[in-house]
Design a protein around this nucleic acid. Structure first.
Length: 306
DNA sequence: CTAGGATCCTGTCAGC
DNA sequence: TGCTGACAGGATCCTA
């Protein structure tokens, strides 16, 4: 899914477009994707948009909130009134890049094609005619209506660990020790250990710290743990600054499609290409059931590097 | 309590 | 062309 930087980028985008807009209609085309009664949010305005790890929370007037988790393939796409989708050959794409449309999440052509489409699970219409589409190919994501007062006690949010920049190096090191027999990649993907990392940023952070993803968490010394949390902060901040995976980063200046990963990824989906640090060929392996990208020279399985 | 694997779901792509 | 299996930017549930 969209990881922390993507969700933060969406949060900022929606804050600019949807704040104080009144919901006049909600269409749910997949029951699984919307928990609660859609009519409960009709007539309410979005008053605040928050983020907890990878979860987005839209606070509505009258004490209700909507939690949105995009999981693997979720997207949130905002279209101003009258903005139409376009063909994906680049023709007319500039129309979609207007100041009153926005999209973020799992990057696909749905960012700019006609909506709703086959993957649209929820469609929210605002008073001014603009719309917010929740698209999700695999249906792992969801929107859930609940009382605003209950947001922070919602199971997933309550058990969330702090984000990397709210954790001291010492605390991170201690947290790793609680999972000393698990593979380090599995541990940093665990949102109860540190919030925000997903498959991309886990690989990037491990590369930054020159740590092999299959090492046991307990084998890292304090300096390695420090470097790892530092890498996590760095790669996620860089991505937020470049706009996460949004329409803007999915489309290049000339209107053709680009690859937003190229903006910052040093190992993710770079298998077969040379390591930007040492020139060794990046390889892809499997760790805890996830595709994992490493530089076999910078990240040695045996133990500490350098 | 921890660790690892299966599972939810749809779509795409490589290999036959 | 059509089929099959692997895999995918996540997290939970079940088992040992």
């Amino acid at each position: 899914m969209p990881e922390l930087p993507e969700v933060e980028t969406i949060r900022r985008g929606l804050e600019g477009f949807c704040l104080n807009k009144k919901i006049v209609q909600v269409k749910v085309s997949c029951e699984k994707s919307f928990i609660g009664a859609e009519n409960d949010i009709v007539g309410r305005s979005i008053v605040k948009i928050r983020r907890f790890g990878k979860a987005l929370v839209m606070d509505l007037s009258g004490g209700l909130s909507v939690i949105c988790h995009l999981r693997m393939t979720g997207q949130l796409i905002y279209r101003g009134a009258g903005v139409q989708g376009v063909k994906t050959d680049g023709v007319g794409l500039q129309d979609l890049m207007r100041e009153d449309s926005f999209a973020g999440g799992h990057p696909t052509d749905s960012f700019f094609t006609e909506l709703p489409n086959k993957q649209t699970r929820v469609e929210i219409k605002f008073e001014d005619g603009s719309k917010l589409f929740f698209n999700d190919q695999r249906k792992f994501g969801f929107m859930k209506v609940l009382a605003t007062t209950g947001v922070e006690s919602e199971k997933f949010i309550a058990s969330l660990a702090p984000e990397p920049w709210k954790m001291t190096d010492e605390e991170f090191y201690q947290r790793l020790q609680r999972h000393k027999n698990a593979l380090i990649k599995a541990v940093i993907l665990d949102q109860k250990v540190v919030a925000g990392l997903g498959n991309i940023y886990a690989d990037e952070a491990l590369f930054y710290a020159k740590i092999h993803p299959k090492r046991l968490a307990g084998s890292l010394n304090f300096d390695e743990a420090k470097l790892l949390i530092e890498g996590a902060k760095k790669v996620m901040k860089e991505s937020i600054e470049s706009g996460g995976s949004t329409m803007a980063t999915y489309v290049k200046a000339d209107g053709t499609k680009g690859d937003y990963l190229k903006l910052f990824a040093k190992v993710f989906r770079r298998e077969g290409e040379p390591c930007l640090r040492c020139g060794e060929i990046i390889t892809k392996i499997r760790v805890v059931g996830r595709g994992t990208h490493i530089c076999p020279n910078c990240q040695k399985e045996g133990g500490e590097n350098d």
